[in-house]
Design a protein around this nucleic acid. Structure first.
Lengths: 338, 338
DNA sequence: CTGAAAGCGCTTACAG
DNA sequence: CTGAAAGCGCTTACAG
């Protein structure tokens, strides 16, 4: 028996199962959904289950949601890769899928990251998901109104609250705090925090800077932001200036490992020694840190103690509480050479 | 008027639109779906469209697919991150979403990467998508049978064909060819190709090795595989042996930039000079290459000339052709220091 | 304990 | 040119 022969003409329906089991479709539905189990004898349940198995029956979710009047689907939109490039966020997103499934919801990611605004909202609304979760910056007044009009809950996610939707606030100021703590501990008193040029990375950068600033203020150190794009020329410019003694700090927090790593190369090229002339700390503790020479000291992030599924479900079930909507990443220093 | 006030009790249905426009639901459906447009006067069409706009009407896709008997949804499953870590693949996946939308299909990614086997197939089958696209290794005989039983087309994707489903074959042997070409050109005659330890990376590694082997054979050079896990200790062991003169090649193809980069650090630590003592080429041309000192020469990949949407749509529309299912990445050398 | 039947919101031959 | 109606595959009060 090959696959072609075993394939039925059309997928089995609940009526097929009912006929084969010799019961009504209502009974099939009850058994398969675990309702009224007390009232249905074991024998009937067994008959129904084995008929369903024999036919390879899988209930069609579109018919189910049409009759139930709701779906158990949560839609996640990643936007143009900004969020996936943000590694701690990407990890939490994968966790969200599993957590939602455990809570009885399905989770799908929009497969077209380029879709935005009202057209995006229309595509999502057509599916009538329980909720749409997206980068807080993705929502506009019009798109949210369209979603609400279709009975869809909209939830934002990001570093800054959206004026249009409840937002799960992701706080990584702890990375800045841990970095500054380490640098001050080492004896640095004149710090620089690198700030990326890509607009998408400004929000996390500002949060991390704020954290570092807090610690610096408390410990009597100075700290200032220096903008550096992820281009060799940009890094080289900064390194040359510092090598010439122009505004050279004694400790640098590199925003993330890529920015820190790029600066590290440029500092080496410019003849500065790390950590002899100045100390350098990255963030996110990527594998990259082990590849560089000297190896890059970095602030690692652990998983959030509680995932983002909590606030998302709260929004879906209309018990949103802004006090439980800020999630802070635990940070710890991973000391290497720099 | 705030959002709460403007939100209707329940989402508008096609009946609401019909009533407001003073026509039947059939007419609304025709106008909104662009059918029989020749037969429907402009005036009616305008009435219908403005009623729909006024009510914020978005057709519910579950009702539509129930009555049409099919969905226009393609489901993509990423598996446990293996595929997303494979950068060229991740890029093509984003492109797939946009291409499918242009062809009139929606595209969703499964939000729970940990789901596998028959349970995964059940979850997908419930949605009755036109097709499920997943890593070829994800499909088992049982899961494919279940999908087919529900009328769902299954399409694999990967470096090796699945015995159960038509597979879009991704070929990156061109990376190995470009790397070997470069090394031989430089005068190397005794090559090593690094092979990763992670099982998920074996298939691309073998394809790249095959490509390098072809060129080596044609140009009279020797080449052998050397397995190296992405751990500092592993790389250090290899570097020490080579520094002691034990089996040191004159050219190394590093599989990808991470493996090449890790070896580069270890070679430096062991006192070997790159490219003085041996040349080194990475692959994928990641930003990382610019961070290392010396900077890493790498083979870059361009986008596929034609995306994976083509074969996927062919499978959906039952015109699958194995001769058009192998996609090869264009490769070009990006020369830097090593 | 079980079944007949209404209803969810669409689409689409079909009749007029 | 337009509408009444059947039908898609489920769920669920309701009656027996």
């Amino acid at each position: 028996m090959n696959v072609a022969e075993s394939r039925p003409e059309r997928p089995a329906t609940i009526a097929d199962v009912a006929k084969l089991a010799g019961v009504s479709t209502a009974t099939v539905s009850y058994v398969l959904n675990g309702r009224h189990l007390g009232r249905i004898p074991d024998e009937t349940r067994t008959k129904v289950r084995s008929a369903a198995r024999k036919l390879g029956y899988v209930a069609q979710s579109s018919a189910r949601s049409l009759s139930r009047g709701r779906t158990d689907l949560v839609l996640v939109h990643l936007g143009d890769g900004g969020m996936l490039r943000d590694r701690p966020v990407a990890i939490e997103l994968a966790r969200l899928g599993a957590d939602l499934r455990r809570a009885g919801y399905g989770c799908m990611l929009d497969g077209d990251p380029s879709l935005r605004g009202v057209p995006a909202a229309r595509a999502w609304a057509a599916l009538r998901p329980a909720a749409v979760v997206a980068d807080a910056a993705c929502f506009t007044g019009a798109s949210v109104e369209l979603l609400h009009g279709s009975g869809v809950v909209a939830v934002g996610m990001g570093r800054a609250a959206s004026p249009f939707v409840p937002t799960v606030l992701l706080d990584d100021s702890s990375l800045g705090r841990a970095a500054a703590e380490h640098l001050v501990e080492r004896g640095c008193g004149d710090l620089v925090a690198l700030m990326p040029r890509v607009p998408g990375l400004r929000p996390p950068a500002e949060a991390r800077f704020r954290g570092a600033q807090e610690v610096a203020a408390a410990r009597g150190a100075r700290i200032r932001p220096v903008t550096m794009g992820l281009y060799p020329a940009d890094a080289a410019g900064i390194a040359r200036a510092w090598a010439g003694g122009d505004g050279r700090p004694d400790g640098v927090f590199g925003f993330d490992d890529r920015h820190a790593g790029m600066l590290l190369g440029a500092l080496t090229d410019a003849g500065l020694r790390v950590p002899g002339d100045l100390a350098l700390v990255g963030a996110e503790d990527e594998p990259l840190c082990e590849l560089l020479r000297p190896r890059l000291t970095s602030v690692g992030v652990a998983r959030l103690p509680a995932g983002i599924a909590g606030p998302v479900l709260a929004a879906v079930e209309h018990r949103w509480d802004p006090n439980h909507a800020t999630l802070s990443w635990p940070a710890h220093l991973r000391r290497r050479d720099t």
